[in-house]
Design a protein around this nucleic acid. Sequence first.
DNA 1: TCACCGTCTCGAAACGATTCGATTCGACGC
DNA 2: GCGTCGAATCGAATCGTTTCGAGACGGTGA
Lengths: 350, 350
Amino acid sequence: MARGDRTTLADVAADAGVSVSTASLAFSGAGPVAPKTREKVLASAARLGYRGPDPVARSLRRGETGVIAVVVGDRLQRSFSDPVSTQTLDGIAQELGERGLGLLLVPSDTFGDVPPLLRHGAMDAAIIAGLSAPGDPALRALRERGVPVVCIEATRRDASTVEIQDRAGTAELTGELVALGHTRIAVITLPFGPQRHRRFFDPAGDVRPAYTPTRNRWAGVRDAGVLPVLAVEPATSLVDEGVACGRMLLDRPDRPTAVVAASDLLAAGVLLAARDLGLRVPEDVSVAGFDGVDLPWLAPDVLTSVTQPLTEKGRTAARAAAALAAGEKPRHHLLPVTLRTGTTTGPAPR
Amino acid sequence: MARGDRTTLADVAADAGVSVSTASLAFSGAGPVAPKTREKVLASAARLGYRGPDPVARSLRRGETGVIAVVVGDRLQRSFSDPVSTQTLDGIAQELGERGLGLLLVPSDTFGDVPPLLRHGAMDAAIIAGLSAPGDPALRALRERGVPVVCIEATRRDASTVEIQDRAGTAELTGELVALGHTRIAVITLPFGPQRHRRFFDPAGDVRPAYTPTRNRWAGVRDAGVLPVLAVEPATSLVDEGVACGRMLLDRPDRPTAVVAASDLLAAGVLLAARDLGLRVPEDVSVAGFDGVDLPWLAPDVLTSVTQPLTEKGRTAARAAAALAAGEKPRHHLLPVTLRTGTTTGPAPR
DNA sequence: TCACCGTCTCGAAACGATTCGATTCGACGC
DNA sequence: GCGTCGAATCGAATCGTTTCGAGACGGTGA
């Protein structure tokens, strides 16, 4: 806003010789105003250089800001190198844009300090787009303020949620590998929770990741009746990490014949690691991912994967946020996934 | 915000038995309040479930919103697949975050319709982060509203600007190739302006792109005393496009011995095209880019490029926006670049 | 002509805080 | 005991709109 002496609706009204309320009506179009009066007001506004009703004053009076906060991972550079994030955000942005709502981007890890914006920023609702574990301080801060929240890929009772059929999708994908004769299957999950580190874990043990999608996709593997021969928790869900995990799984005598990664980026990394180790895909090892994102630089390979409707997920979240802002009750949304068979999976060797 | 009957500062003050002004002081900490009084107020607030001062009311009174709008390309999915965008945005987000300022993300192509948010959204200043040509309607709309603007990589007199030494950097890079004995050098520029299409253009003709960086980087090539044998304007600055342009330049009998691309993503595409055509880099053809972004999937190659301080560029823009919001006058910033010699350039063949 | 009824316009009260200038109160010095 | 001073507190104005109920005005039907 311009600082100092801005011209206000009162100035315009005075100049046009009408009351402030009439001038307001002339601008907002809500209520009957004689065409001649409206013109007079608009003319005065133009002459005085009136920039239109102050959005802040309007917000105060109306009791709504028209802004939805979107909480994403702390380092945008990292978060946005994952097409899953950017495509979801794109969906959110599209839907909010079409509704004339603003998108307040709040980078924040869902553990550690909560950025002041989340405590004091003006917003009608918030979408937590990154991974979020129970007890998430960001979520709690919003809750305390009474800001309604939409969680993407997290199960919460007191918020709207948007989830996908991770579990069934992963089960179907894993089943496919079983059908191809694979018995030595390894799994790379998603990170279990906020404390991130790369490690093997016991597939037969008690596996309870804090993050919902991590939990669901793991459960999907087990649903397919598979007990992985090796299981790795990655530190992130990026290509580099996939390469590192891929090495851990493939550079050993008892290597598996198939690797199921819980994200396409991880799977792509595994693919690179395999190439690097001189392994043929899918002849020597099959690789499958999850998400169905477009990775043109992987050409000519096409990753076998479970495709989730990322843009639609974003749009759904945005719609849910708008609904909450309008005073509706929280709802839960579940989006379907589809299996995409690519070139990176094939019959188990020998 | 919670709709309906929220508890206000007045309620808290009444409950605590103090005046509204004292209660306000107790919260904001601006002004003398007896410790005992403050405690009493905070206690009442806690009991009544007061959520803290309403940000909108505060904004109205204070005359500032604490929000900086950032205008980026229309399709986030596309914009954010360019590390140049994400890294710059990361810098902006970091700096704004540290200052407690909000980041209102506004996707908008800088031609075509201006999103309503730009006309009516609450903001103290705006950063135009995407490419912007003279007469940019988004810029004009902001100007009309009296919102101060920072332009990244665009020359404007009536706004703050953040630019880099494109021209000198490109000249240095091109000079390097000349020193390596290259005489048949081809160039891929950036898009010239909003109307985007892929085409050869006459390098000896009158070349005046609307976008500043396009103009500067082209000028840099000429500064090095080079008249390219072939010149292509790309439709975007992405990898796919680089592949397409690379084919146009390399899949012909009179192919150049070196290709200078105005962005790393384009250069990476050229590299892929070269590999595809069975050309060795740099033995058969040298390839250079611009930006200095990290492209790990290009391994083992490292692109010869001009590195620009992307995060710092974002931070500088954010600082400039904060300064404008605080009422300072527009300023112009110029950031340095450095040459990074990678593995993709070598002596001219034969 | 009168009562009535739309249509348009207006005044005033919110919306929820911040801030300025004034007032009160207690303590202290003389 | 009185005047003075500083700290703490308070009232009231203000930020710029929107909105509600009431009023004015002109025209219509009986």
